[in-house]
């Protein structure tokens, strides 16, 4: 799978991405590629800079150094670091979800999905003028938007909850709805920040199926941060490992799982026999990076 997808041109190319907050380097010279129709997982211990990197890609931070190039299938190129946040979602087609769910809790489930189609509907409503007087062209577009929302509600099994306030949904349903809302922006790259957090094993399994179907049917690239190793190892085609802001390993799940650096940094402190040595190395590493960042 990895070999196949890597052969194509990359959807997202991250080059030398660095993000500093004062003296702290949260993301340090990270380069990797994410592909269309592939699930790229970003893993790493807490504080490794995963969410910071996400925020750079989706325009919530502007990176200190680096280039984020998005190549759409139609040949359009976007340099995400130069776009304002809302254009990254609206024009370039990068949608995201949040670690702590950010729905519109007082709006209904359906409304959440309609708001996600804002840019298209806004255009169809002639910047509100046509819509205000109920032009039929706008009404048709709105109906299409509802149909699209219905399609996604059906996929995430929330069709009978369409007119309920989003805040009243159960936690797992809210997670699914947030993914559907992101998909309603019709993205080429879907960025998910810990989508399995707080889900039970059954829900987590359903999420895996949903993500696989998004990859296979909608042909979008998925970039996901995840702590749940069962999700990462089962569905990802490519894994990127960050530690202290640096990229320490990259490859298919199998190779990453067996990479000693990764094991040391993240997966298996208890699996490792030479524990004292590991801790010593870890501390040395920590000290190095600490000193490095104070100089920077």
């Amino acid at each position: 799978m990895t070999g196949k997808t890597l052969g194509k041109t990359a959807l997202l190319t991250v080059e030398h991405l660095t993000m500093r907050f004062g003296g702290l380097t949260a993301v340090d010279d990270v380069s990797f590629q994410a592909h269309s129709e592939a699930i790229t997982a970003v893993i790493g211990p807490n504080g490794a800079g995963k969410t910071t990197m996400f925020n750079c890609i989706t325009g919530f931070y502007s990176p200190t150094v680096g280039r984020l190039q998005l190549c759409r299938a139609q040949g359009e190129n976007f340099f995400l670091e130069r776009l304002p946040g809302y254009d990254i979602a609206g024009k370039a087609g990068v949608a995201r979800t949040f670690q702590n769910i950010r729905l519109f809790p007082q709006m209904t489930v359906l409304e959440n999905l309609i708001v996600a189609q804002h840019r298209v509907l806004m255009k169809a409503s002639g910047m509100t003028v046509f819509g205000l007087f109920g032009f039929p062209s706008y009404r048709r577009r709105e109906k299409e938007a509802v149909d699209f929302a219905r399609y996604w509600l059906d996929r995430i099994d929330l069709l009978d909850r369409a007119d309920v306030e989003a805040g009243h949904l159960a936690y797992g349903q809210q997670r699914r709805l947030e993914i559907a809302r992101a998909m309603c922006t019709n993205p080429v790259l879907l960025c998910l920040d810990e989508p399995a957090a707080g889900l039970n094993p059954r829900e987590s399994g359903e999420l895996n199926e949903l993500l696989l179907s998004i990859r296979n049917q909608e042909k979008v690239g998925v970039l996901l941060i995840e702590h749940d190793m069962s999700v990462v190892m089962e569905i990802s085609d490519h894994v990127v490992v960050l530690d202290y802001g640096r990229l320490i390993a990259e490859g298919n799940p199998e190779s990453v799982r067996n990479n000693p650096d990764v094991i040391r940094a993240y997966l298996g402190e208890e699996e490792d026999e030479a524990l004292p040595e590991v801790i010593a190395r870890d501390l040395a590493h920590h000290k190095d990076s600490g000193e490095g960042s104070t100089h920077a």
Partner: peptide, 18 residues
């Protein structure tokens, strides 16, 4: 709807291209 969404969550709005 964008106004109401903005009232609910501005950050989420930005992530949806508003």
């Amino acid at each position: 709807r964008a106004w109401e969404a903005l009232r609910e969550d501005e950050i989420a709005c930005r992530s949806l291209g508003i």
